[in-house]
Amino acid sequence: MNTEFLDAFWIMLTGSLVAVTGALLGCYLLLRRLSLIGDAISHAVLPGIAVAFLMTGSLSSVPALLGAAVVGLLCTWAIETVQHRAGVQGDAAMGIVFTFLFAVGVILVSSLAGNADLDQECVLYGELAFVIFDQTVLGMPVSTAILLANLLLVVAVLTFGYRGFFLTTFDPAFARALGFSTVAWHYVLMSLVSLSSVVSFESVGAILVVAFLVGPAAIAHLLTDRLPMMLLLAALIGISASVGGYFLAAALNANIAGAMTVVLGVEFLGVMNVQFMRKRWRVTPSVASPT
């Protein structure tokens, strides 16, 4: 195997890991109408990441990752406090909190100026191509390994908590009656989103995480009514976007994460158009109501 092929493989694999993690969590966010909380969290982890860099010089240690992820949780808590305690309407509460945290993050990053690992552009869109310059762990680049571990964690929690997530997503009242704590499951989900935003940060930046939290889930939602199918489709869409994005970026010599997002957008448009055609030709199979 030549190195060029290997490099491409690592980049696509890393991108796919980010995309699949986002896709799985995104399905639940979408169904719970929390897509924009994902947006807020992905912005708000920035100060956590900056502090982690200040203290440890990198994001490759577990305490640094967890510390940064705590800020994401803090953000959801702050949004709820501003909304319910101070009585600010929901969308504005979110807007105030995440822009504030992001501003603090940018200020911290600026005060770190000279730290080569964390500059302002990296904050926004990361650099997936740098993954190949990482040190290796177990034969794979460190970022890839961290993302893989995070994906395994997400898959494990989602699998073992399937019933809890399923019930609290679709019928919170019934779930409460059965003794599931909706608050606890909510915060478990938020913790996973925060952690995933943090570990995806170096590859795709703080903002493009949103693309993977919203995009694949939204497309999959158009295609199916069944949750397991939606999760599977979202993951496949995520993988296809990262492979397609790699080639698009290679062709243009541009940012890979941005290209992945563009592919997601094209996929979404494609699905929307196919649905339009089906409507026009009236061969729509049963349009079942959402479960």
Partner: peptide
């Protein structure tokens, strides 16, 4: 909103 925001922004980054 999330979809449009991220796709447009991603396109911009590209």
């Amino acid at each position: 909103i999330g979809l449009v925001l991220s796709v447009f922004f991603g396109t911009g980054v590209l």
